[in-house]
Amino acid sequence: MSAVSRSSHLSQPSHVAFDEVSHQFEDIEQQREAYVVGMWAFLVTEIMFFGAVFLIYTVYRTLNHAAFYEAHKQLDIGLGTLNTFILLTSSLTMALAVHWAQVRNRRAQIMALTSTLGLAGAFIVVKAIEYSHKFAHHLFPGGNFVYPDASIADQARLFFSLYFGATGLHALHVVVGMLVIGAMLTRALRDRDARADYIPVEMTGLYWHFVDIVWIFLFPLLYLIPR
C-alpha cells in the first residue's frame, strides 16, 4: 500500500464529490440506498453481538434478582445518568453534523463533529472515574474482588463481571467511534470547498447512534434495578 497515493487522495478531497455516481450504480438515489443498507447490514451483526450480552445478563439477573439488586447499589446512579445525558446529547450533535454535511455547511459540520468528539471523550472520562472507584473498592471481579456481604459474594461477582463486560465492550465501541468521528473531522477540515460527499458522515452517524442505543438499554438494566 503506498502512503503516497493515499495522501494524494486526501489532498484532493473532491475525489468522491458530493453528487458523484460511481459507475456500478444507476443513479445517486440507488447509490445512497446501497450505502445505507450496507451499513445496516453491519449494524445487524452488532445488534446480534450485543444482543447475546443482553440475553446473558437477562438470564442471570432473572436467576439472581435479589443479589443483583443489592450489588447494583454499588453503582453511582448520578454518574450513570450524567453519561446517559452526555451520550444522548452527542447523538444530537452527530445528527446535526450529518445535517450540515448534507447542506454542505462546512463550518457548522466541523463545529458539530468537534462537539460530538468532545462529548464522547467526556463519556470515557466519566466511565474511567466509575471504573477507578470500582477498582478502589475491590469490586472488579478479579483476584482482589472483595464484597462486603459474603453471603452473596459469588452472585455480586457475577453482576460485576457482567457490568464490566457489557460496559467495557460498549466503551470500546465509543473509542472506535471517536477514531471514526476524528477521521470525519479531519476530512471536513481538509475539504475547503465543501465538495465532499456527505455519505461517510451519515455512515459514521448510523454507527454512533447505534452505540447510543446500546447505552440506552444498558443504563436502566445496570443502574436502575428494581427491588
Binding site: W40, I47, G51
Partner: peptide
C-alpha cells in the same frame, strides 16, 4: 432500509 433496520431486532426477539 426499513427491512434491514428491523431484521436485527427481529432475530433478537426470536433469540430472547
Amino acid at each position: 432500509v426499513w427491512v434491514w433496520s428491523a431484521v436485527g431486532f427481529f432475530w433478537l426477539i426470536i433469540m430472547f
